[in-house]
Structure formats: structure tokens, C-alpha cells
């Protein structure tokens, strides 16, 4: 608890972090029998000190403290500033309790609105990740194994260029394309395939398409990097032994690219589940995405502890998903981080 008695502690933290990294640099694990220069000899003392201090500050202030702060806050009650640190400021589970049992809009015993939004978000993000994989795999395979270098460069440019545009602008562009008077509906109506415009936004189709599009590059690059390292002779060998194309993909390419697939899917999943712009812009009136609810906890309800609890729940779900994927794929964290 960062109350008045806790303040000196926060000044000790950077010192502690630096000390930890200093010790790690000093007693670097080395392979047996290899005589390697120490961390300080390799980099020179000034650079070594800079690296240790920079890494310590970065990991402390960018990663550890914000997360710790949010976790800590999620266990505190919502109080007016004057009462913070006072006798009522005690650790409590009420924010997590609210996620399951509380409600502001209905008299149900269980907070179905938020729980549904949470699981829908997780489920939809999963679908977005899988859909993205299905969409990106053929392209990544083409770029990594089939296309000539000049063609690959051209395709990469085509892939990257749209991302020069701001994410929110891109989301609005999707809203325009998918609106009832938008390009897609005009084409469908013009061709006579439908009698009246399809409500892409109300049915969340625009949202899923927008999310899929927003994080496509993550998937493409993860897959491309993995498939590119596959020796083309392996594909030819399988073909030569009589394998049909689907067999080569299912038993040669995909097992080889498994770490890339896992890292692409987990990235897209986590980014979709945590996405804010696309659900805000592309979400229909009835759509339930968890991040806007989370956002509202902070900035509409002004209930930061509750927002922190919601954010922590989402983080736990994402971390569990990554661990599950690793377990299912029999992969180590190091493999998908490559």
C-alpha cells in the first residue's frame, strides 16, 4: 500500500532494480568451458553502467510499477480523494465482486451484461485470430516460398502502406465502406444480389472485419518469418514422394511454422481483445465489447479501482490464453518470441 508510510519505499525501488541488474550482469551465466569477457569488459564501464541503469528504469517504470499499481488499485474501494489513505481505505474484493454480481442497469443478481461482454470479447478475439490466420497463411506462404524477391517487396509495400494511415481513420474508413449506403451495400444492391442493404455494423461484421484488418500485419509477418526459413527442397521432396498440396501444408509447412503461427495468433488475439478504437468506431448500437466497458469504468463512472480490476481480469485472460496456446502447441515461450 502506497500510503504515507510507503513513500520512502518508492525511492528505494529504482536503486533496488539497478542493484538486481548489476548483480545479473556481474554473475552472468556462461556456458561451461567458454572463456568470455565479462559484461563490463565487453561494453566498457560507461556503456555498461548506462545499459544497466536504462534497463532497470525501463523495466521498473514501464512494466513492473504500472502493472503493480493497477493490481494494487484494483483491490481498493472507490473513495473521494479526501478519504484516500484514511480509515475506510482498506483492501477489498468489491471490484471483482461487482464484475460478477453487481449491476447498474438491471436488478439481476448476476452482472450478465459485463460477463457476457467479457466472454464475447474473448470468443470473438479468438475467431478474429483464427480468421486472420486463414486469411494470411496463403499470402504468407506465397511470399515466403513462391514469389520472386521483387514481387515480395511490392507485396510488402502494399501491405504496409495502409498502416501509414492512423488507426482511427482506418476504422472510420471501414465504417463508411460497411455503412448501409456504403460501397459494399451499393455493389450488392447494384448487382441485385440483395433487396435491401445489409446492416454490417449492427451485426458486428464491420467490427470483426476492422479488427482482423487492424492486426493483419502482425499475423503476416509472424507467418512469413516462420515459413521463409523452411527449405524449399522440403516442399519439393514431399511433392516428389507423391504428396498432394494439402498434405504438404498440413504435415510439412504448418508443423514447421508452428512457432510463427502461435506467435501470430496470440498477438492478434491479445491486440483484438484489448482493442479500443475499432470497437468504439465500428461497434453497432448493440455490440458488447469489453474494452469500451472497461474504458467507461475509468472515464464515465470515474471508478478507477473498478477499471483496474476489469483491466486485470482481461490481462489474466490474455496471459492464460498464451499459456494455453503454448501448452497445446508444445512450445516454449522462447520459440514463439523468435
Amino acid at each position: 500500500m502506497l500510503s504515507s508510510t510507503g513513500h520512502p519505499f518508492i525511492f528505494l525501488l529504482p536503486v533496488l532494480a539497478i542493484a538486481i541488474f548489476w548483480v545479473m550482469a556481474k554473475f552472468e551465466p556462461k556456458p561451461v568451458g567458454v572463456t568470455k569477457k565479462s559484461f563490463f569488459e565487453r561494453n566498457g564501464t560507461p556503456v555498461a553502467i548506462y545499459l544497466i541503469v536504462a534497463v532497470a528504469f525501463w523495466s521498473l517504470f514501464m512494466i513492473v510499477l504500472p502493472q503493480l499499481f493497477m493490481v494494487e488499485m484494483s483491490f481498493r474501494p472507490k473513495l473521494p480523494p479526501i478519504e484516500m489513505g484514511g480509515p475506510k481505505d482498506l483492501y477489498t474484493f468489491e471490484n471483482y465482486h461487482y464484475f460478477i454480481y453487481g449491476s447498474t442497469t438491471s436488478s439481476d443478481a448476476i452482472n450478465w451484461v459485463h460477463i457476457k461482454a467479457f466472454f464475447l470479447t474473448i470468443f470473438a478475439s479468438l475467431l478474429v485470430a483464427l480468421f486472420n490466420f486463414a486469411l494470411c497463411y496463403p499470402l504468407a506462404f506465397y511470399m515466403a516460398q513462391v514469389a520472386r524477391p521483387a514481387r515480395v517487396r511490392f507485396l510488402l509495400l502494399l501491405l504496409i502502406a495502409p498502416y501509414w494511415v492512423n488507426e482511427i481513420l482506418r476504422a472510420f474508413a471501414f465504417r463508411i465502406i460497411f455503412s448501409s449506403g456504403g460501397l459494399i451495400n451499393k455493389i450488392l444492391l447494384g448487382m441485385g444480389w440483395v433487396d435491401q442493404p445489409i446492416d454490417f455494423i449492427g451485426n458486428d461484421i464491420a467490427l470483426y472485419a476492422g479488427l482482423g484488418y487492424a492486426y493483419m500485419l502482425m499475423m503476416i509477418f509472424s507467418l512469413y518469418n516462420a515459413i521463409e526459413t523452411l527449405d524449399h527442397a522440403q516442399i519439393e521432396a514431399a511433392r516428389d514422394l507423391g504428396a498432394p498440396w494439402w498434405h504438404i501444408h498440413a504435415f510439412i509447412v504448418i508443423p514447421f511454422a508452428k512457432p510463427g503461427i502461435a506467435s501470430g495468433c496470440t498477438l492478434v488475439f491479445m491486440l483484438s481483445a484489448g482493442s479500443l478504437a475499432a470497437p468504439l468506431v465500428l461497434g453497432g448500437p448493440r455490440s458488447l465489447w469489453f474494452t469500451p466497458i472497461l474504458y467507461d469504468r475509468f472515464f464515465q463512472a470515474f471508478n478507477w479501482p473498478q477499471g483496474a480490476a476489469y483491466a486485470f481480469i482481461l490481462l489474466l485472460a490474455c496471459v492464460s490464453f498464451v499459456l494455453l496456446v503454448l501448452r497445446l502447441g508444445r512450445l516454449s515461450l522462447g520459440e514463439i518470441a523468435k
Partner: peptide
């Protein structure tokens, strides 16, 4: 007739055994 339909088998310069 494609390579997977021919009565031939090729041994590659780098062998191309399946590492997995």
C-alpha cells in the same frame, strides 16, 4: 504429369529430410 504422379524419386543435394 506432376512430380507427385511420376514413377521417379529424387534425392536432393541437401537431402531435404523432414527434421520434425
Amino acid at each position: 504429369i506432376g512430380p507427385n504422379q511420376r514413377p521417379t524419386a529424387l534425392i536432393f543435394q541437401n537431402l531435404a529430410l523432414f527434421p520434425l
